[in-house]
Amino acid sequence: MSSYSLAQLLHLLAAIAFAGTVFFEVVMLGGARRHAPHEAMHAVEGAIGRRAVAVMPWVLLVLYAAGLVLAWHHRGALAQPLASGFALLLTIKIALALSVLGHFATAMRWRRSGRLRGRASRRLHLSVFVHVLAIVALAKAMFLAGW
């Protein structure tokens, strides 16, 4: 297996783990919030949050490290982002991925300062969810773009 293929595999697996976690938090927990007692949801969200803080940095490390390897492989396309559909979509995908990294850093700062609660937390998670959906769509479209 080439280093590029390994990077693709690791990037895909980490992306699945990250996107799945974000999907679970936004869609599943968001829907469950209306049907469960506040105290129970608070305990569940706290436990999931603690686990996410332990696991997600490692997932993101693999995701972004593998992404850097893949970006380096496509550095020629990235040097001319308007030259092809692939290059343009890859550039947008990277910009969104950097925005997600910024969201994650913000979440960690807010968590440490005790500001990651309620509405702010839900909005941050929803924003990351929308970013992740766009990144997944772009990832697929990059290999379909013939312009």
Rank of each mutant, 00 (worst) to 15 (best):
W110K: 13
S3E: 14
S3V: 12
A120D: 12
A15K: 02
A95E: 00
H35W: 13
A120K: 13
M142T: 10
A145D: 08
V26R: 02
F86V: 01
G49L: 08
R34T: 05
H38E: 14
V26M: 01
A134T: 04
A36T: 14
L6D: 07
K140E: 02
A79K: 08
A79Y: 04
V55A: 12
R34I: 06
R119E: 15
G102D: 05
F24E: 05
M28W: 12
Q80N: 13
T21K: 02
E39N: 06
A139W: 02
L68V: 14
A145K: 07
I135W: 04
P81M: 05
R122M: 10
H74P: 00
A97H: 03
M28D: 02
M1P: 13
L90H: 03
W72T: 09
H38D: 08
S5W: 08
G67F: 08
S84L: 11
V130E: 00
H38R: 15
A145P: 07
A134F: 01
I16V: 15
F129L: 06
R119F: 11
L88E: 05
M28F: 10
A54D: 12
A87M: 07
H73Q: 12
M56V: 14
I48E: 03
H131Q: 12
S127T: 13
Y4T: 11
L78G: 03
A71Q: 11
T21C: 06
A107S: 08
L60G: 12
G114M: 12
L82I: 02
W72H: 14
V100C: 07
I94F: 01
A43R: 15
L96I: 15
W110V: 00
L126G: 14
R51L: 11
Q80V: 09
I48D: 02
M41Y: 11
K140Q: 01
G102L: 05
L124H: 10
A77W: 05
A77H: 11
R34H: 11
S99W: 13
Y64C: 04
A14F: 02
L88R: 03
A40D: 13
G67E: 07
I48C: 06
R119C: 10
M28T: 11
A95Q: 00
G46L: 13
L138W: 07
F86Y: 11
F23M: 07
V26T: 07
A137R: 04
W58H: 12
A120S: 15
I94W: 02
A120M: 10
A7E: 02
G85R: 03
R123T: 06
R117K: 14
M41W: 10
F24M: 12
I135E: 04
R117M: 04
T21P: 00
V132G: 01
